[in-house]
Design a protein around this nucleic acid. Structure first.
Length: 474
RNA sequence: GGCCAGUUGGUGAAGUGGUUCAACACACCGCCCUUUCACGGCGGCAUUCACGGGUUCAAAUCCCGUACUGGUCACCA
């Protein structure tokens, strides 16, 4: 049996939103599930969209996600080059081969004529479709024009009648009327192939067995099939996947917010968590398991269980996954992970390494993403605490002043500043002020930290330091 | 507009003719634990599967129609 080979084929735009990433995940898992190859191919046939450094960016993203690229522009296999703009001769050769076979033809219609046709079509409220004018040209006529230096494109000859059946792993069989198929351009007048053509040629040449792509290409697949048939090539297995929508239920776009992998990563979302979250968006395993390691995903992934309907991105669930991955980190790794966010938010000079580590550790089970540490930890870096409405209400209650003043005396009395003694101070306050539970803890917590929920109170007080605590107690 | 597809709760979703079929998870709410909040644990949360017909002894599951949503009709990918 032939080896399973999938490919991720992005345009080098220097931006990857989570929908694209999810496609890559599916492709990767399909390949690895069968012990196959996962390759990266850069689709840069539109020279206008090219962005500097984009290929590095893609490699970086994929490697952060834990994907091993078996073949790609930076690690070529025997099917290279892996950048489409370096394969121009190939497309040219195959496009002309199709002309020889009679499945394609030269077209000399200029933009002006096409524009006229478009106008007529829109006047008649019809979809524009090339009228196949140049199909009639004889071989000699076409050659003559080419010899005269006329610029041309190569178009695929579409059947006018009948239907084409597209087989898809997730959508089953989709029937497309051939009458809606345009004689699509294969080779542009600048010698570049169109996306559709390059795709077919490359997928065949690179021996791709499974193609995962957005559902928006489903209709186009009929054209692909016809192309494969014209060449006499074996078709790959298609899996079209529904879209990932933004949180508001509309299409993802750069404007729609932080739905790009890098934005998420920069905010302190762990790639493993992002991958774990995304794989469950539009795919479900047979079991109820939700937290998966890469190995488990590779084992469990079955493209037949990909959903037909689009799904909405939901940060809350991502946060849940991310929090789990953060909680499961070893302390040192966790510190290494959050420290940069802390450093970015505050001036840490004068703080001991031990203090910083202690501070970060008490938040490990509290934060959902790295950057969140900055907000959470604010109370340790501000001189004054400001109380929100809820706190102000609480603190108005009777007896609180007494609790605070007793506690202040207890704190004053501590000579050896450590968590244990602070805990004792709280306990002593309980006895002397005759308060317990919420009425004991909350006043202290509010006065000292300004918020009603946070990590362990003794640790908080310890990290704040005696001076600050006394000052805040008033 | 033509064509193609989708429609299970606020969200991700399981379930493809009948033994709890509306699982599980996020979010939300409640309780317990913790001398406080959080963490954690437990429990609640769709009499109903877009709507209307039909097939059947039996339908979220099959068929037809309607509505809604989305996609697609480029020398863009």
């Amino acid at each position: 049996m032939e080896k399973t080979r999938t490919r991720f084929a992005p345009s080098p735009t220097g931006y990857m939103h989570i929908g694209n990433l999810r496609t890559a995940i599916f492709e990767y898992l399909i390949a690895k599930h069968d012990n196959g190859d996962f390759l990266l191919r850069i689709e840069d046939t539109d020279q206008n969209r090219k962005v500097e450094g984009a290929v590095d960016f893609i490699y970086n993203t994929l490697s952060l996600c834990g994907f091993k690229i078996d073949e790609g522009p930076f690690n070529e296999g025997k099917y290279g080059p892996y950048i489409q703009s370096e394969r121009l001769d190939l497309y040219k050769k195959y496009a002309h081969e199709l002309v020889e076979k009679g499945a394609a033809y030269y077209c000399f219609c200029d933009e002006e004529r096409l524009e006229r046709l478009r106008e007529v079509a829109s006047l008649n409220k019809q979809a524009f479709m090339y009228d196949g004018c140049c199909r009639k040209l004889t071989k000699e006529e076409a050659e003559e024009k080419i010899k005269n230096g006329e610029s041309y494109v190569i178009r695929q000859k579409m059947p006018k009648e009948g239907q084409t059946v597209v087989k898809d792993l997730v959508y089953g069989e989709v029937v497309i009327d051939n009458s809606v198929l345009e004689d699509q351009i294969l080779l542009k007048s600048d010698g570049y192939p169109t996306y559709n053509f390059a795709n077919v040629v490359d997928d065949h040449l690179m021996e791709i067995t499974h193609v995962v792509r957005g559902k928006e290409y489903l209709d186009q697949t009929a054209k692909y099939n016809l192309l494969y048939e014209a060449f006499g090539w074996e078709k790959p297995i298609y899996a079209h996947v529904a879209m990932v929508l933004g949180e508001d239920g509309t299409k993802l776009s750069k404007r729609n917010g932080d739905a790009s992998f890098m934005d998420l990563y920069n905010d302190g979302y762990l790639p493993e968590a992002i991958v774990n979250y995304l794989v469950l968006l539009g795919w479900s395993p047979e079991s109820n398991q939700e937290v998966f390691s890469m190995e488990e995903l590779i084992k469990e992934f079955n493209p037949n269980r990909i959903s037909k309907s689009s799904s909405q991105y939901d940060v809350k669930k991502l946060n849940w996954f991310n929090a789990i991955y953060i909680k499961n980190m070893e302390l040192d790794k966790y510190v290494e992970f959050v420290l940069p966010f802390l450093k970015e938010g505050y001036d840490l000079s004068g703080k001991s390494e031990e203090w910083i580590k202690h501070l970060l550790s008490i938040y490990q089970s509290h934060i959902s993403y790295g950057k969140q540490i900055v907000d959470e930890v604010k109370l340790f870096f501000e001189d004054e605490v400001s109380l929100d409405e809820e706190c102000q209400e609480f603190i108005k209650q009777e007896g609180i002043d007494k609790t605070i003043s007793v506690f202040k005396d207890e704190i004053n009395a501590i000579s050896d500043w450590n968590v244990e003694n602070i805990t004792n101070a709280i306990n002593n306050t309980k006895e002397k002020a005759e308060v317990k539970g919420k009425m004991l803890y909350m006043p202290i917590r509010i006065k000292v930290s300004g918020i009603m929920h946070g990590p362990e109170l003794p640790d908080t007080i310890y990290l704040l330091g005696k001076d600050t605590v006394l000052k805040r107690l008033g």
